[in-house]
Write a protein that binds this DNA or RNA. Structure first.
Lengths: 247, 247
DNA sequence: GAAATTTGTCTATTGATATAGACAATTATA
DNA sequence: TATAATTGTCTATATCAATAGACAAATTTC
């Protein structure tokens, strides 16, 4: 954080306990409260934020629920592991490789697939006519059992017919594309935004209401510039940061 | 958006009217409701979100307050301009150039400057010893009179003594660095995250409580790899998207 | 063992959020 | 001009969020 104002807004449509929970989460992520350290006692936090102790307790309860804190009667409240994974985005963005070294177990699950007519956005990105059939793959990425991404990918249905089966079998976009003669692909463009998690995000990513998701909209192309995949991915901001590298 | 669930969460610590306001904002940004188009009538929206009409009215009132919507009795509620600027991030990220063509007027204001001992993060990034003096520049970027970024930049105080004055005079980081013999610089690394705007963000960026900010932490280096600037920038997610390019 | 510190639970009260219904005011349309 | 559609205002009620205070339960410290 910059100015470290540590202040909160009333009548904002966001409950005080949630604002405080968010700030604590941020303080922890930034390292103000290291792993296993004790948080200041509830009374001290209440004074610092200018709220009632019960409001602090609500914020802490939410973070305990999220698995960020552990409260022990008589001892204090302690910080559990809250390391954010750093997901590299660059010319060769690959899920599993990207998190190598940060999580021992990582995989992608195919949640659903469908064939649908391309909407304007998908069609333009893939260089197809609007309305042409495309295959949509809905996937979730997990690292050490924790959901870290939720993505939708669109592919030309004629060129990549059966990629859904390949994906289900291999659990890898890269491997699936390889079956269709795509030995290599590059990230052509990435546009980034952020918003509140909606109900679908909450369910898919196992988040608590009020969480924030990072959203990337990207196009992958073959080395000779032919677009093969359009995707929209969502990352829980509390678990992932995006590290931009050579692109 | 992906599944387009358009649903909301109760008892989440985020008021329903704010969740709905956020979703409407997103729908508008994505183009579901084009500029000058009429929103569905309040009764229809109430049914669609499964809430009372008064709750919809609260959400709309907030967006009217933010200047996103205009309500006219007897006619309907209409979308005002809600174009998000696209801020390019790449090897040569420069504020003014980046928004060229998207905003006719754009400039950086120096809000404050100070000399302080480098903390661990700044010291490591700049290759200095912890505690060495660094200059901190607090700036705000504006496009067409609207705040679009709020940044803190840190520089080695010995090498760049007086850069605060240069910044105040030129209104440009690039021009200021040029005075110290830095004719060119590159973006070495960028780490990206998102969080709720805190009180300082709300004031600096003229945001409404509950808004989301994109946060970039970056290091700029000279062409031969010498780090010269460490920075942390915040962008209002409702006004800016980040477009990642060759980095 | 006693005291101090800290989290856990309970009751009560106030203000913000959300629902429900009715009707007024304005605009567009038949 | 009448009717329908839409936003604006008002009252009433229920639930959630936040404050306030008191005391219990567990742990650490002296």
């Amino acid at each position: 954080m910059i100015g470290q104002a540590n202040s909160i807004e009333r009548r904002s449509g966001v409950a005080l306990w949630r604002q405080i929970a968010d700030q604590l989460l941020h303080s922890i992520a930034v390292g103000d409260f290291p792993e296993n350290a004790a948080l200041p006692p509830e009374v001290a936090l209440a004074e610092r934020y200018g709220v009632n102790r019960h409001t602090i307790r609500s914020a802490i309860a939410a973070l305990v629920q999220e698995g960020v804190l552990r409260a022990e009667q008589g001892r204090g409240t302690f910080v559990l592991s809250r390391r954010r994974l750093s997901y590299p985005i660059g010319a060769r963005t690959r899920f599993s490789e990207g998190l190598q070294g940060q999580a021992s177990e990582r995989h992608i699950t195919l949640l659903a697939s469908s064939v649908e007519p391309a909407n304007r956005r998908v069609a333009e990105s893939l260089g197809l006519a609007k309305g042409v059939d495309v295959i949509r793959l809905e996937t979730r990425g997990e690292a050490d059992g924790m959901p870290v991404s939720r993505a939708a990918g669109w592919f030309d249905a004629r060129r990549f017919a059966g990629i859904d089966a390949a994906m289900a079998e291999t659990g890898s976009i890269t491997a699936s594309l390889a079956r269709f003669g795509v030995s290599d692909y590059l990230r052509q463009s990435t546009v980034l935004s952020a918003r509140h998690a909606d109900a679908a995000d909450l369910a898919d990513l196992d988040l608590q209401p009020g969480a924030i998701v990072l959203v990337t909209v990207a196009v992958n192309v073959t080395p000779d510039g032919q677009p093969i995949q359009f995707s929209e991915s969502r990352f829980p901001a509390e678990r992932i940061e995006l590290k931009l590298s050579a692109l």
